[in-house]
Nucleic acid binder design. Structure first.
Lengths: 206, 206
DNA sequence: ACCTGAACACCGTTCAAGT
DNA sequence: ACCTGAACACCGTTCAAGT
């Protein structure tokens, strides 16, 4: 009976960086960034708060690791082709910027990963194949720039979305939210913001 | 002597929301977002921390107000035409995204203002003149969309920049930073991230 | 080597008390 | 009406002490 066979099953034992990151993402998704404290984390992991520091240097580091993990999953999902239908559709996917997954906020706080994601996205095999070696540097540069621009755009939107959610957690309905913003615009001085007034109606249809 | 003439000079007296916001921006610019505490603020304003709550509801509100003020200034500066040279130059202005002004971080945390700024920018008189009423809705829609896209892009970049600064305050030199990121990329698995490796060199020239 | 949990310095916010 | 500053509940982080 001392020869226990340890299957790669479900072992919720022994703390590890992976388990901590996993728990962090779970909290992030379920309750948002504010709820991610070392106390909440150690409660969920049934350990002392100090134990986490043995595996993770910092809260900032933890957040970064969680972000990486989320990005990795997303990139995987896209590269797998499950979401590969039409590029236009993929871009419009509301999930792309992390609007539904609450772990989105952290995305905008990393200086390097956005670029990394862009590049990861551009590494999609199907596209790579077409750009043979002879295709030249110009095409590569174009891919890089396009990917970077798109990703920065998405991160900008993601930032707004999570900011909106933070200010008012009830904001699930996009239409209501846009209507509210438009209403706020028309309340401003028409003399100073004429364009704002003219365009307010358009916002709802965005 | 009871008839004091109150010139609109330099009156550092009586607390007010404006004075608080002003002080907040000063702290933000000088020491970054982490340094903006109610204690630091009340010390600078020579008052009790509770006094601030009489004029401002919340830290979140304060941050929002500071953001608005900074945006207003920027929009003013641009609209004044001082920075109006070539559009291309204005876009490339490193200051545009709030990279030098440390109050940038807050920009990405507001759900509405980005759109508002976009629209404010599009309200530039010189451009407005050209789009006569007859020009039609299509042009308006184009302006709106272009402005929104550009602003979201800028906010994305601004987020990255401030994130970089937060992680490593020494990051003043753009070249060093990009080189460091590129180096990190080449350290990854070439099989999984071929594009990353191919493109690393390009990053430095961005 | 890894974990525990009290302790430390600090934060946003509240509130009785002052003027 | 406006301001003061102690108090409260909470946070990230450290660290002696355990196994």
């Amino acid at each position: 009976m001392s020869t226990e066979i340890r299957k790669t099953e479900r072992r919720a034992e022994a703390l590890s960086k992976d388990r901590i990151v996993e728990a962090a993402i779970a909290i992030l998704d379920a309750e948002g960034e504010a709820a991610l404290t070392f106390r909440a984390l150690s409660a969920r992991l049934a350990t002392g708060s100090g134990a986490i520091y043995w595996h993770v240097a910092d809260k900032q580091t933890l957040l970064a690791a969680a972000t990486d993990a989320v990005i990795e999953q997303r990139a995987e999902r896209v590269a797998d082709g499950r979401q590969q239908r039409e590029p236009r559709a993929a871009i419009r996917d509301p999930d792309a910027g992390g609007s539904s997954t609450r772990s989105g906020p952290a995305l905008g706080r990393r200086p390097d990963v956005p670029r990394a994601v862009a590049v990861r996205g551009a590494a999609d095999p199907r596209r790579r194949r077409r750009s043979a070696r002879g295709a030249g540097r110009a095409r590569q540069a174009g891919q890089f720039n396009a990917a970077t621009a798109l990703l920065n755009f998405i991160l900008g939107v993601a930032g707004q979305n999570s900011a909106a959610a933070r200010l008012d957690p009830r904001i699930g309905d996009r239409t209501d939210f846009l209507a509210a913003v438009a209403a706020q615009w028309t309340r401003r001085d028409p003399a100073r913001y004429p364009f704002l007034h003219r365009i307010a109606g358009q916002l709802a249809g965005t």
